[in-house]
Structure formats: C-alpha cells, structure tokens
Amino acid sequence: MAKAFDPSLNAGLANDISLEIDLSSTEGEKVWLDKGFTILVGLSALASVAVLFWMSVVVAQQAWPAIQKYGAQFLWSMDWDIGQLLFGALPFIYGTIVTSMIALLIAVPVGIAVALMTSENLLPEWVKSPLAFTVELIAAIPSVIIGLWGIFVFTPVFEPVAMWLYQTFDWLIFFSTPPLGQSVLVAGIILAIMVLPTMAAISREVLLAIPAPLRSASMALGATRWETIFRVMLPTGASGILGAAVLALGRALGETMAVTMVIGNSLQISPSLLDPGTTIAANIALQFPEALDPLHIGALMYLALILFVLTLVVNVAAVFIVQFVSSKGIGG
C-alpha cells in the first residue's frame, strides 16, 4: 500500500504507459523534424554504446604485439625487466587480488554494520540520515586525496599497529616480516575505506526494501533484535548484499591512485601482508608516463586488458545479481 507513493514505482508505471503510445507526429510540416530528432537521439545512444566496444578493440589491438610475444605465459610469469624486455603479470595480479580481498574483508562487515545502523530503528532519525550521508560522502573524495592522507596520516598512525601485529603474530605467515611503512595491508585498508560507501549504500537500500511484516513477525515470535537481523533480515537481503559486495570488488580491483601511493610498489610476491607489493593499476600508472619501447607499451596494454576483462566480468556479474534481486522484488 505504502508503495504507491514510491516515486521509482510510479516511474516504472509511467514508462510502461509511454511505451504503448507513439507520440511522434505523422503529418504536418514538422514530420521531418521529428524524424531527424529520432535519428539524432538514436545515433547518440549508439555512439555512447560504441565507446565501450571501441575501448575494448583499441586496448586489445595495442596489447596484441605483447600477446603474440608472451602469450598466456604472461599471466604466470614473474619477470618484469624493461631492459631485457621480459614481462610477466603474476606479481601484479597477485597484488590486485590480495589488496581487493583485504578491502572486502573489512568493508563487507563494516558496510553491513553501517547499513543496519542507518536502516534499523536503533538510532534516532537525526543521527541516521547524517550518518548515511557522511558515509556516502567518502565516495566523493578524489582518490588522490585519500592517497595523500594515506601517505602522511594513515601510514604513520598505522605503523605501531603493524609493528604490534609483527611482534605478536609473527608465527602467522601473513605477519611474518618486519613492517617498513608502506605495505599491502595498508593499501588494503585504504581500499576498504574507498569501497565502503558502495557497500553501505546498496546494503542499506536492500535492507530498507525488506517488507516490515517480516521483521514484525520475527519480533512477535520473541526474537531479539539481533536474532531478527541474523535470521530474517540478512538472509532475506542476502542476494542484494552479495550484489553490493561484488560491485565493491569491481571498484577495488580497478582503484589506482590511493593504492599506488601507499603500497610501496615492489615487484615481489610475498605471503606477508606487511611487505610492500604492487597492483596492475599501480604499475600502469607508474610506468606508462615513461614507457617508450613499443613492447613495453604493449606489455602495459596487456596488463590493462587483463584488468579490463577482470573488472568487466565482476561488474557484469554485479549488474546481473542486482537486476535479479530487483526483478524478484525482495520477498514479494
């Protein structure tokens, strides 16, 4: 019932009606104007769409010399020697995946906590709205500024924590090397801060869309708030929250500047998260301005292509999950 006042529902309805009626004029002096206009918007839409395909073609074309030379071996080769023109992507792929995983590990629980705090009736409205707004605002900060903050504020503050992790948990392989300041862990945490708004905002929408009777019924059966959250709310919203996490993953994989500035950029593969590392995006950002040899450019293009395909797959999956959820309408 209350849904009738939802503007998005009205918009959907409106759209359906407009489809059935063709408003184009069929006679009069201005038929040509309408036809021309129709063609113009059609061409614009096609041009916008063409950009994505054009991008794929151009990047693949530029990467082609490197693909021919190094083939699939590029993916698991560890060399990166510009002088000898030996290139391999493994350290970059490894760093990209590890930093993104750390980011998700932090951003998913924190994002869900923020979504719960801003959708449940635990806090008064004058706290909830500003909280949701503030978290969303993080997304508006340019990533280079987060990187600057990461270098001069977060890294020094985190240093004692990293030291403590090393001294206390050095038997754990993740914390087995002495911290040097910039590290994969720092980059992962910075990434978590950057993808948190995506995670929190979408999870909040999902939780708010769950019909109220579901939670009332659970409370009426004697469940406490958190029993209701864990047994009713989160399972009902699970697919939407998964979509949010996949979308956040897509952002984390491609994030460049903040990571480049704090990860330390070292071409090693170390299981220790306190060691510096590198990512695909960071390497492209660092080496492209100075790349001169066509094969070096080709190898960087190959890296870009890998990142492109990786994020494409993740983003397409996220779109499908979110569409599946919205078409299902969450619990009717």
């Binding site: 994505l52 491609g254 995006a281 960087l300 870009a304 990142l307 492109f308 994020t311």
Partner: peptide, 9 residues
Amino acid sequence: GVPSIVVGV
C-alpha cells in the same frame, strides 16, 4: 564501472 585507469589507457 570500467576502471578510470583503463579509460586512460
């Protein structure tokens, strides 16, 4: 959703 660095490339 394409990473901005790929757009740069």
